[in-house]
Write a protein that binds this DNA or RNA. Structure first.
Length: 278
DNA sequence: CACGAGACCTGTTCGC
DNA sequence: TGCGAACAGGTCTCGT
């Protein structure tokens, strides 16, 4: 569910000092409640509590779709998958209906991992690389130059959409932002990565960055019952807009399935390059 | 290496 | 109105 902009939004909320709660940084962990055992992927609840108890939270970062909470010793890593959410609330507030893991903090605060579908996972590790090591580069990192992106695209020979969804290739893009970026770039979801020209690779990288940055600026998307306060869903170009006019050329948006994922694109702006017999 | 199918889950919406 | 089917922002594993 949450993609890079939604996870970034959650990270920013947790870091800030708001009317609803103090910043997460500086809080001390006092307890751990695991209500759905599989949510804590590693280690056991007993071991995790021993490590966590009395530890102060010193940093909170996002990497791809992961949230990373650094303690004085050890690192907690969260992945929200399809329906997860992470919020800091008072222990007097009502727990959300699907609280799967709860970190009790000092001064009556608690960090609640709510996750209706139970796909989300939490790890406590010494070295974050154990979980994050294989991730591809951050799309918004300036170190990722068009030259490098072009080279990455040509090192594989894959359909663009599944490749953008591959977290080993690039970290943080999901089903919504891949459709949005490909439409903005004017590229068909089934276009082959190794056949892109340098100019088109650069256009694609810029499009990815533009949609992610707009998503962050709008505090992410809130869809259906997974509401997080953002409003990017009101500005989608193609996602969920089957039959509606393409924002650029008015052609009705088409819906297909690619790699088992629902895919939306404009048949006029995003034409598949004719593949020769070679 | 690339790709498709199946698993893991619950809640909402669709179609008859 | 009711009820089963289809579908949902993600990722892993297995077989071809």
């Amino acid at each position: 569910m949450p993609e890079l902009p939604e996870v970034e939004t959650i990270a920013r909320r947790l870091r800030e000092d708001s009317p609803d709660h103090p910043p997460l940084l500086g809080r001390t962990v006092e307890g751990l409640d695991v209500r759905w055992p599989k949510t804590l992927a590693k280690p056991s609840r007993q071991e995790a509590l021993i490590t966590l108890a009395g530890q102060k939270i010193i940093a909170l970062d996002r990497r791809g779709k992961f949230l990373q909470i650094n303690l004085q010793q050890g690192t907690l890593i969260f992945h929200l998958r399809m329906s997860g959410d992470l919020a800091l609330q008072s222990e007097r507030a009502e727990l959300p209906a699907h609280a799967r893991l709860i970190l009790a903090l000092d001064s009556g605060w608690r960090l609640v991992f709510n996750d209706p579908r139970k796909f989300g996972r939490v790890w406590l590790v010494d070295d974050p690389k154990e979980i994050l090591g294989a991730l591809g580069p951050e799309p918004l990192d300036a170190q990722l130059t068009p030259e490098r992106f072009y080279e990455m695209l040509h090192r594989r020979s894959r359909h663009l959409k599944p490749l953008l969804l591959d977290q080993h290739f690039l970290a943080g893009i999901g089903n919504i932002y891949s459709d949005e970026a490909l439409n903005l770039a004017g590229l068909h979801p089934l276009e082959n990565s190794a056949r892109l020209t340098y100019a088109r690779a650069e256009i694609l990288l810029n499009a990815i960055r533009a949609v992610l940055q707009e998503g962050i600026a709008r505090n992410g998307s809130s869809i259906d019952w997974v509401y997080r306060g953002g409003d990017f869903q009101n500005h989608f170009r193609v996602y969920g807009r089957t039959g509606e006019p393409c924002p650029k050329c008015q052609t009705p948006i088409e819906h297909i399935t690619v790699g088992q994922r629902s895919t939306h694109f404009c048949p006029n702006c995003q034409k598949l390059e004719v593949t020769d017999e070679m």
